[in-house]
Amino acid sequence: MDIFLQQIINGLVQGSIYALVALGYTMVYGIMGLINFAHGEVVMIGTLVTITVAGSLIKAGMPVAVAGFAGLMAAVLVCMALGWALERVAYRPLRNAPRLTPLITAIGMSIVLQNLAMMIWGRNYLTFPALLPKMDFEFAGANFTMIQIIIVLVSAATMGGLLLLVYRTKLGMAMRATAQNPAVASLMGVNINRVIAAAFVIGSALGAVAGVMVGTYYEIAHYQMGFMLGLKAFTAAVLGGIGNLAGAMLGGILLGIIEALGAGYIGDLTGGFLGSHYQDIFAFVVLIVVLMFKPSGLFGEKTGDRA
């Protein structure tokens, strides 16, 4: 039982990370129906900026808490600027282009950002400075750490904040209007360009937060770390029904737990025929099964044909 509990904790934390990244995908998708493939790279840049800023401040003798906060702020600012620039330069001109065009642009941007990061931060794996005091807990035979609790709390709080933003503020209303029908929204006096830019900036800020969380948790970073993470998070977003904030959160956590339990138990269940080498498959198999019965994800609204 303690092992089962431990696996649930593992999955919950991993899932919260997926969820945090997935929120960024879903935020952008919900408003303009665009898969921002480069979102994983934004997360990566967030992590690497934090390493540089926090690392050099700690070296300069600043207290870890201050340096960590400064690192986080720097990452958020850089990523917001990056998100804004991405939207302005790469995506806005393509708003009326054929469906696949922005997707290819996003892939191109993803390659560009990865290689830029490699030029700036080098090819080696970097260590993330320890920003939080190490605290280990034990509960019913399962081990967990301070940072794991923080990750779960932060992603829950982020989702809560986003829901408030979307449903309780004027900007949120404008966002929902744009998502419904951009043309009509603009007739109603909504500045679509500003709303979409805001979605990108907010999504990227979330990416920066996710990047700092990932960095603090695993304590390593690399210029290619964003790709797999982005892919998993995207899967999570689709699983939950892309465009739906709560769906992204639940999809992420579900995916994390499925992976952990799958890796932990599939070997015993199949008599050793399948093992943890199929860990990456579980996510996709569940996704396919869910989509077969609910073609727009667990919590997604029915979307029109956008292809």
């Binding site: 593992n10 093992g275 943890s276």
Partner: peptide, 21 residues
């Protein structure tokens, strides 16, 4: 125990938990 991961993975907690058991 025979467990597997990939050359891109960063999270090994699930397989390590199994190994722990």
């Amino acid at each position: 125990a025979s467990e597997y991961t990939t050359d891109k993975a960063t999270d090994f907690k699930a397989i390590l938990t199994k190994i722990k058991s």
